[in-house]
Nucleic acid binder design. Structure first.
Length: 463
RNA sequence: UCCCCGAUAGCUCAAUCGGUAGAGCGAGCGGCUGUUAACCGCUAGGUCCUAGGUUCGAGCCCUAGUCGGGGAGCCA
C-alpha cells in the first residue's frame, strides 16, 4: 500500500478506505481504559489527522507509552467519519508502529506556542511547527508561481555566477572568496598578492546577477535569474539578510514603462497564485499573525499600483502636513518613514516611484534628458517597503562612460559591460525582487529571518 | 555601524527599597473523559548570560564583554 498524505485524507478521504499514513505526533490524548487519540502532521497541510487507537490493537499499552509530542509513527487504518467535532474524518488504527520516539524531557517543541526568537535557535526543528510548515509551503508556492509567470511569457531562465570577480558592481559590500591562508597572511607583512589566489585575482560572492543578465538579455531576449545573493553589509534589521534569494528579469527593448508594467503584473500574479494555492495557510496567518493580511493581499490583486515620480512624491510628503522625524528634501533618499507614509497612509496601495535623482542611484540607470534624474523605479508595498528595485539601463556607450566616471568608477573594469553598448546596443530594462521580502508580504511575518529556512545575518550562521 | 531595550525553571515571564528564588504553561505520576490548546490533583525542576567591581549582604547597583529583540542607515 502506498503512503497517503494527511492533506489527501482530510480533503478527499473516503470512509471505508484503508490508508497508510506516516508523520509526527503533535499531541496525544489518552483515555486510560479504552483508546487514545493521536494527532499526526506530515507537513502536507496545516491540519493534523486524528488517529483513533483502540486498546485492542496488539501491544497497545507499550506503544502508547512510547508516544509523545514529536514522535514519528506509521499508522495503517481505516478512514471513518468522525464522531467528534472538529474533523470530517479520522483514521482508526489497525496497526501502529513507532518509528522514532521523542523524549519529552528534552524535546524542545511543546504543545504550547513558542516565540519566533526561540524557534530561530531551533532551526532544525522549527519546520515541524504550524507557522514554519506553512511558511515552507508558501515559499514553495511563491517560487513555483515565479517560474510559471516567466515561463508562460517566454522568458529564459539563466544561471548567473555565484562567484564573481567583478568586484565593482556597486551594490554593496562583497563577501570575499579565497583559498589563501588567512592565518599565514596575518603574520606576513608583504602586500597582498592575489595572483596566488584560486582565481588569480580578487573574487567574491555575487551581490546581483544583473550585469550578467544583461549579457543574455541582449542576445536571447527576455531572461530571468533566480538564485542566492550575498551582501556583507552589517545590517541588523527585520528586512535584511546576508544571504537571500533574488529574482532578476532583464528585458531587451523594454523602456521604463514596460518595466513597470511587467513588475506590477508580476507581483499581482504571484500574490494571486499564492492566494489560490495556499488559502488554508494564509487564513492561519491572517488569524494568528497579521489581521489585515488577506484584505491587503486582495487589495494588491484587485487594484492598479499607484505610479508617480520621485519629484511628485517629495511634493506630496512636503505638503502632507505630517511630522516626519527626518525632513523631506529633493535630492535625498526617501527614509523608511516617508515610504511607509506613502504606501500605508496616503495611498494605502503599492506605489511605484520613478525618476530618482541621479546622485543617489547606480551608474547603470539611464539618464533622463533633464540631467538631474535617472530612469529608476522602486516598488514599495505596505508593511515591507521596497520589494523591487529596477531601472531602464543606460544603453548609450558614451553616456555610460561619463556616468561611470561621475560615480568614481573605472570604465576599464567594466570592459565587457561596455562592449554590450559598443556592439549592437539596445534599450533594455530589468528589476530585482527580493524573495524573502515577498514571503514577508504574503505571510505577514514581521522578521525576514523567519522567511528563509536558514537565515544568515551578522554574527549568526548556524545550521 | 549608531540609538533604545532585554538575558531568571524546558518555554513565556514576575520578584516592591539591595535582605530566604516565584507563577502560568510544559514535563512526570495519579484521576477523569469521543477527546481535540481537554480537564482536576500531586511532584520534580534554578551556575539568576559571562568576567570583574561596590556592599555586612547583589537577580537587582557600577564597568567591560557576549548574545538576542526593536528602530535607523545600507538595500532586495
Amino acid at each position: 500500500m502506498s503512503l497517503t498524505r494527511v492533506a489527501q485524507i482530510l480533503k478527499a478521504g473516503q470512509p471505508g478506505t484503508t490508508v497508510d499514513v506516516r508523520g509526527w505526533v503533535r499531541t496525544k490524548r489518552e483515555s486510560k481504559q479504552d483508546f487514545a487519540f493521536l494527532e499526526i502532521n506530515d507537513g502536507s497541510c496545516m491540519k493534523n489527522v486524528q488517529i483513533v487507537v483502540d486498546a485492542k490493537i496488539p501491544d497497545y499499552a507499550s506503544l502508547i507509552k512510547q508516544i509523545s509530542t514529536g514522535a514519528s509513527v506509521a499508522v495503517v487504518g481505516e478512514i471513518k467519519e468522525s464522531l467528534g467535532k472538529g474533523q470530517r474524518v479520522e483514521v482508526h488504527a489497525q496497526s501502529l508502529k513507532v518509528l522514532g520516539t521523542a523524549d519529552p524531557l528534552t524535546y524542545p517543541l511543546q504543545k504550547k506556542g513558542h516565540s519566533f526568537e526561540f524557534l530561530r535557535e531551533k532551526a532544525h526543528l522549527r519546520p515541524r511547527t504550524n507557522t514554519f510548515g506553512a511558511i515552507a509551503r508558501i515559499r514553495n508556492a511563491l517560487c513555483s508561481a515565479i517560474h510559471n509567470f516567466f515561463q508562460a511569457r517566454g522568458f529564459l531562465y539563466v544561471q548567473t555566477p555565484i562567484i564573481t570577480t567583478s568586484d565593482c558592481e556597486g551594490a554593496g559590500q562583497v563577501f570575499q572568496v579565497t583559498t589563501l591562508d588567512l592565518a599565514k597572511l596575518q603574520q606576513s607583512k608583504g602586500p597582498l598578492d592575489y595572483s596566488h589566489d584560486f582565481f588569480g585575482k580578487k573574487a567574491g560572492l555575487t551581490v546581483s546577477g544583473q550585469l550578467e543578465g544583461e549579457i543574455f538579455a541582449t542576445a536571447v531576449g527576455d531572461v530571468y535569474t533566480f538564485g542566492p545573493t550575498f551582501r556583507a553589509e552589517n545590517s541588523n534589521t527585520t528586512r535584511h539578510l546576508a544571504e537571500f534569494w533574488m529574482v532578476e528579469p532583464e528585458m531587451p527593448f523594454y523602456e521604463l514603462e514596460d518595466n513597470m508594467d511587467l513588475a506590477e503584473s508580476f507581483v499581482r500574479t504571484i500574490v494571486k497564485d499564492v492566494l489560490n494555492r495556499c488559502s488554508e495557510d494564509l487564513e492561519f496567518f491572517n488569524e494568528r499573525i497579521e489581521p489585515t493580511l488577506l484584505a491587503s493581499l486582495q487589495n494588491i490583486v484587485e487594484h492598479d499600483f499607484i505610479r508617480l515620480t520621485y519629484t511628485d512624491a517629495v511634493k506630496i510628503l512636503e505638503t502632507s502636513g505630517h511630522k516626519f522625524e527626518y525632513p523631506v528634501a529633493w535630492g535625498h533618499d526617501l527614509q523608511s518613514e516617508h515610504e511607509r507614509f506613502l504606501t500605508e497612509q496616503h495611498f494605502k496601495q503599492p506605489v511605484i516611484l520613478t525618476d530618482y535623482p541621479r546622485a543617489i542611484k547606480s551608474f547603470y540607470m539611464r539618464c533622463n534628458e533633464d540631467g538631474k534624474t535617472v530612469r529608476a523605479m522602486d516598488v514599495l508595498v505596505p508593511r515591507i517597503g521596497e520589494i523591487i528595485g529596477g531601472s531602464q539601463r543606460e544603453e548609450r556607450h558614451d553616456v555610460l562612460i561619463d556616468r561611470m566616471k561621475e560615480c568614481g568608477l573605472v570604465p576599464e573594469d567594466y570592459w565587457w559591460y561596455l562592449e554590450l553598448r559598443q556592439y549592437g546596443t539596445v534599450p533594455h530594462s530589468g528589476f530585482g525582487l527580493g524573495l524573502e521580502r515577498t514571503v514577508q508580504l504574503v505571510t505577514g511575518m514581521t522578521n525576514i529571518r523567519d522567511c528563509i529556512p536558514f537565515p544568515r545575518t551578522p554574527k549568526s550562521a548556524d545550521f
